[in-house]
Write a protein that binds this DNA or RNA. Structure first.
Length: 290
DNA sequence: CGGGACTCCTGCCAGC
DNA sequence: TGCTGGCAGGAGTCCC
């Protein structure tokens, strides 16, 4: 599922139920996801208060009253679903798996968060189990293995044409691979890299280190624009992504190239091409992107 | 060392 | 209808 816009959509969906809530119950249905659950995971979470819910790249971060921060990564197919209860009654309009009978099968983690008279069951479901959760000391978040090497947030002022130029200057690899590298910039994935490069008119095959400062200066605001549009649309719903309340994002209707192999380029009409690099599909227009 | 290929896992869909 | 192969939003690891 999730690149930055989808994770941000999930964050916004979970925040009202989690921020300021006490974790009353934790159910773990298997020993591991991509990695084993941390030691004594249930004990370290139970009765902790969630101070806030933040996002870094494609990670969700929940700093806790215990001094640890709960980290979640959704991998390819992870998602969170909320069932909210108020005074023992389900809150109308909030769905729990109604839209998808497959969901219950891979419910790996269920957290009950209590806030005032509201209780929310928050379920992490992930068929492929490429996602994971972790608990790290809040005081050393930046030094933990997940964030130590991570590049700037693409929507932050620290991500500029200049900083991008600097981080890819020595790279022989393609601009596509460079932008997917979370050490260069954090949060981009296959969809939004394809879309941004199309809008910027840059070939995904072009060597990252050989792109002029001027073109990178134009690329960076385009990346921000694509991400902001996708966040505003609630992310992209391919296959199984939905927000925590079951609502579907709709940015997939605005794709210019992703998933459009053979369809006419919106700019010139030439067929969109698909190539495979490192096992990943890349969609682009060989006429408009140079 | 940088960079590319391969790998983890399950589900779905097109094609036969 | 049923099987098979290919493909999927990520990213760590291995090998050249």
């Amino acid at each position: 599922m999730p690149e930055l816009p989808e994770v941000e959509t999930v964050r916004r969906g979970l925040a009202p139920a989690l921020e300021g809530a006490r974790i009353a119950e934790v159910i773990v249905n298997r020993p591991d996801l991509r990695f084993p659950f941390p030691d004594n995971f249930v004990g370290r979470l139970t009765d902790a208060e969630v101070q806030s819910l933040a996002r870094r790249g494609k990670y969700l971060l929940a700093p806790l009253s215990t001094g640890e921060t709960l980290i979640a990564h959704l991998g390819m197919s992870g998602r969170f679903v909320i069932e909210r209860m108020q005074d023992g009654e389900a809150v109308p309009g909030v769905f729990y798996h109604d839209h998808d009978a497959r969901a219950k099968k891979h419910d790996h983690l269920i957290v009950t968060a209590v806030k005032g008279n509201q209780s929310s069951a928050i379920t992490y479901n992930d068929p492929r189990r490429f996602g994971f959760v972790d608990l790290v000391p809040s005081s050393a978040l930046g030094e933990c293995r997940h964030f130590r090497m991570m590049g700037p947030e693409p929507l932050s002022p620290e991500f500029t044409g200049q900083t991008l130029k600097q981080s890819v200057a020595a790279k022989q690899t393609s601009i596509k691979a460079a932008l997917l590298d979370q050490r260069v910039v954090s949060g981009l994935g296959n969809i939004y890299v394809c879309e941004a490069l199309y809008r910027a008119g840059i070939s995904p095959k072009r060597a990252a280190g050989r792109i002029s400062a001027g073109r990178l200066n134009r690329l960076v605001p385009i990346i921000k624009q694509v991400l902001n549009e996708a966040i505003a649309a609630g992310g992209s719903s391919l296959r199984d992504f939905s927000a925590t309340d079951g609502q579907l994002g709709y940015f997939q209707h605005d794709f210019s190239v992703y998933g459009r192999e053979g369809a006419p380029c919106l700019g010139c009409g030439a067929p969109i091409r698909r190539i495979t690099t490192a096992g990943r599909s890349t969609f682009y227009c060989s006429h408009c992107q140079r």
